[in-house]
Design a protein around this nucleic acid. Structure first.
Length: 402
RNA sequence: GCGUCGGUGGCGGAGUGGUCAAUCGCAACAGACUGUAAAUCUGUCGCCCUAUGGGCUACGUAGGUUCAAAUCCUACCCGACGCA
């Protein structure tokens, strides 16, 4: 690891894998476990950086593919790099574009999430058996790289591991990720195995490209894949974990019920002295399990995306603020929440903003959800430091209904 | 007063003899969303039931023609416009 970075562990969960630590970056330290807010296009949707800071966020994660398409990585570079360009002075991360292999590939126009879940007659389910075929024309994978079509204008672009690293270098985030292939949870074992070999090959190429630079001011994280298959997950953890990365991402798709066990197995194998970032996981209960199993960093679009769609976290579970029962509720969304939104606005008012399609709804809801999740992870950190993680977990689970 | 056009489900607005409980949009009501193609998407939306089916009431009102009417005819009520 470059001298500009260091990772130290301050305390651990008794008889467990979870730990609290500090990850030092050129733009400040990150106290882990930590939830990085997602700002895909160099902006946390609907929020100013002052609002993001006020929420308590310490890290922003942006996306290479999106910034490459718009405004172009050279513009970000000329703008002083991701942080300066977007007026964020703290640590930054970029994803490599590997997730778009999935979201623009197998998941394109399909009702597929990277989280597979058995649904039993809840009325709103869809069959998962008829969405196995990837006929997407938006992303095509070969061993050399991935051809993407721009979601903006349909133009073709080719990403290789080397190209992804170069682009991430131009963008200039503190932490960057190896280029990987995120697969569908419906992928067969055979395909998953093939994709894993490719991801491993790409990891080596990403690392080699990264090491080319004379002066390295970025930390490169390798990504563990393997989908829903335990043997592949373990193989990947051993392979990626054995490489000279500065930290690790855990990516890919999961069975909802297996996240905890899968992450636990992976983290048993990964080096203990480097940070682990569980990519794209942000459900409050998933976060508890993942922290307990030794993950240090997280990022997820869920808090901001569901906020924009009217779903808000409370200590008792998620609510849809558009439900008729909130129309006359002149109290905060969550009376125990200390966020700006809850300190100043009522549920009735926020529901009104959503119904009226006022843009302030997105802002107030995003503030609330991000505050909820960031505080949630911060409390877990404090609990690990204080040695009462189990108490925190029990207290949370007692109230929170999934 | 005469003439013309028009009155359709919460609203707007299709439909002009059968496949119409009635296209579509909005509103309403619910659901989904986990490295953002996303201020997005999905479902329900006359009433009732022994509900991938059946019954009832409905297209201004009242009659009529027809095997069959939101659709044709007559009268009336209401609205817009034109002429007196």
């Amino acid at each position: 690891m470059s001298a500009a970075f260091s990772f130290s562990i301050e305390n651990r969960i008794k008889n467990g894998q979870g730990r609290a630590g500090t990850f030092l970056t050129p733009h400040g330290h990150i106290q882990t476990p930590c939830f990085a807010v997602v700002g895909t296009k160099a902006t946390v949707k609907s929020l100013t950086v002052e609002q993001v800071k006020d929420i308590g966020a310490s890290v922003v994660l942006a996306n290479t593919y999106h910034l490459y398409l718009e405004p172009g990585t050279q513009i970000v570079k000329k703008g002083g790099g991701l942080g300066q360009f977007m007026n964020w002075t703290g640590p930054t991360i970029t994803d490599s574009g590997g997730f778009q292999v999935f979201s623009l590939g197998a998941a394109y126009k399909q009702s597929v999430s990277k989280i597979a879940e058995l649904r039993l007659g809840d009325g709103a389910d869809r069959s998962s058996d008829d969405i196995l075929i990837n006929d997407s024309t938006m992303a095509k994978v070969t061993d050399d790289g991935v051809e993407f079509k721009s979601y903006i204008d349909g133009s073709a672009h080719f990403f290789t591991p080397e190209r992804s690293i170069q682009l991430q270098k131009d963008i200039g985030a503190d932490v960057i990720f190896a280029f990987d292939e995120c697969t569908s949870p419906h992928a067969s074992y055979e395909y998953q195995k093939e994709a894993l070999d490719r991801t491993h090959l790409w990891a080596a190429r990403s690392l080699a490209e990264h090491k080319k630079g004379m002066e390295i001011s970025q930390a490169l994280f390798g990504i563990v894949q393997g989908g829903r298959y335990n043997d592949l997950r373990e193989k990947s953890a051993r392979y990626i974990g054995g490489m000279d990365f500065d930290g690790f991402g855990i990516g890919g798709s999961f069975d909802k019920k297996d996240i905890e066990a899968t992450v636990s197995r992976i983290n048993e194998i990964l080096p203990d002295d480097k940070p682990r970032h569980l990519l794209g996981i942000g459900d409050p209960l998933d976060l508890i399990n993942a922290v307990e199993m030794g993950c240090d960093l997280f990022d997820c679009v869920a808090p901001t995306r569901i906020a924009r769609n009217g779903t808000l976290y409370t200590e008792r579970g998620k609510i849809n603020i558009l439900n008729a029962k909130f129309k006359n509720l002149f109290r905060p969304i969550d009376p125990h929440c200390g966020c700006y939104t809850c300190r100043h606005y009522t549920a009735a008012y926020i529901g009104h903003l959503f119904r009226a399609k006022e843009i302030l709804a997105n802002t107030l809801a995003s503030i609330h959800n991000l505050y909820f999740i960031i505080s949630h992870v911060k409390r877990m950190r404090a609990a690990i430091i204080n040695g009462d993680f189990a108490d925190f977990k029990n207290a949370f689970m007692e109230k929170y209904v999934a």
